[in-house]
């Protein structure tokens, strides 16, 4: 009798790590990928702004060129006409010049630095505050939960833009750190609520009970068992919140309480272009497009991450 060959156990190539699985599902979403590509491009441009503007565009985002003349189609023209109308898109000014003769493209690139940095760090700070508050409220419940939840309710009852304008007016206008602080202060409450709800559910799960039975203290449970399970909602919140922060920063700068000229931000660029929006449309249009595309990309990425983390949500939908 011949012995049956013993089957060799081998790893199924289809089985991947959870992260790889999430990435596979994310990469399968063309909208999310296009959003990610645009954001990567914008981030690169923002990081390389000085190099790009000076050495590639041969321009300056800050130098006003009201009295300069440039050659367009073999003929010399004023960068800003005697009637105060700046030059439109030309080879030297690909997206036109602004009211004081600065290159709009260069300012959009520098504006990306400001907008992305402020919204990014604002989101990061909101994450820290929201995670801490949500974990405390959800895990300890009782007095912690009551105090934090009521405070969050009160904060959320104030209209966001009004709160941001009030904070921006009281704090020093135009200061980048203050802008980060303002965005974080108006944003953290949303994450605190999400985290609290998740933690209330997680703390009753068996693995938390098991960890407690093995002698793990509160800090270990929070750090090793609860926090990793919050990664999904936090990433989704972060991407969507960044989009909101870009809009809020733009709105505050547009209203004159955000980033102050001559530092370019997309919001204050639109505001600066308004007096001539009907004859020099490029000053307001292109920063507006930059805002729309960036916010749209962030929303698409956030949406893609959400569905990659929870594929059932898409099929249910």
């Amino acid at each position: 009798m011949s012995a049956e060959p013993i089957p060799v156990l081998a790893l199924d190539p289809a089985v991947r790590s959870p992260a790889a699985d999430v990435w596979r599902r994310f990469a399968a979403d063309p909208w999310a990928m296009s959003g990610l590509a645009f954001l990567a491009l914008m981030l690169l441009a923002a990081l390389a702004a000085p190099l790009l503007v000076k050495d590639v565009l041969h321009q300056s985002a800050f130098r006003q060129r009201v009295m300069d003349r440039v050659t367009v189609g073999g003929r010399e023209v004023d960068v800003v006409s005697d009637l105060g109308i700046p030059i439109g898109p030309t080879p030297e000014f690909p997206l036109g010049a602004d009211l004081v003769g600065r290159d709009v493209l260069s300012r959009i690139i520098y504006g990306a630095r400001i907008s992305l940095a402020i919204s990014g760090f604002g989101t990061l700070l909101a994450l820290l505050l929201g995670l801490a508050a949500g974990l405390l409220a959800g895990f300890y419940r009782g007095v912690w939960d009551t105090v934090i939840s009521r405070f969050v309710d009160a904060m959320m009852a104030i209209p966001v833009l009004l709160l941001a304008i009030a904070l921006a007016s009281v704090l020093r206008q135009g200061n980048l750190l203050m802008m980060v602080l303002i965005l974080a202060l108006v944003n953290w409450t949303y994450l605190a609520r999400i985290v609290r709800a998740e933690v209330l559910s997680l703390r009753e799960r068996d693995f938390v009970e098991a960890a407690r039975a093995l002698g793990a203290n509160d800090a270990a449970i929070l750090a090793k068992h609860l926090l990793p399970n919050l990664v999904g909602p936090v990433i989704v919140f972060a991407t969507l919140s960044m989009a909101g922060n870009i809009l809020l920063e733009s709105a505050l700068s547009f209203l004159g309480v955000g980033i102050q000229p001559p530092t370019p931000s997309w919001g204050n660029m639109i505001q600066e272009g308004l007096p001539l929006y009907n004859v020099a449309w490029w000053i307001t249009l292109f920063p507006g497009i930059a805002i729309i595309l960036t916010v749209l990309s962030l929303n698409l990425v956030g949406d893609g991450v959400k569905h990659a983390l929870d594929p059932r949500a898409r099929s249910a939908a």
Partner: peptide, 20 residues
């Protein structure tokens, strides 16, 4: 201002609401 509702999808509607 864009605020993600807990677990909700902001999608294109809030954007349109802002831009329109």
């Amino acid at each position: 201002m864009s605020k993600p509702a807990a677990g909700g999808r902001p999608g294109i509607a809030p954007l349109l609401a802002r831009v329109l």
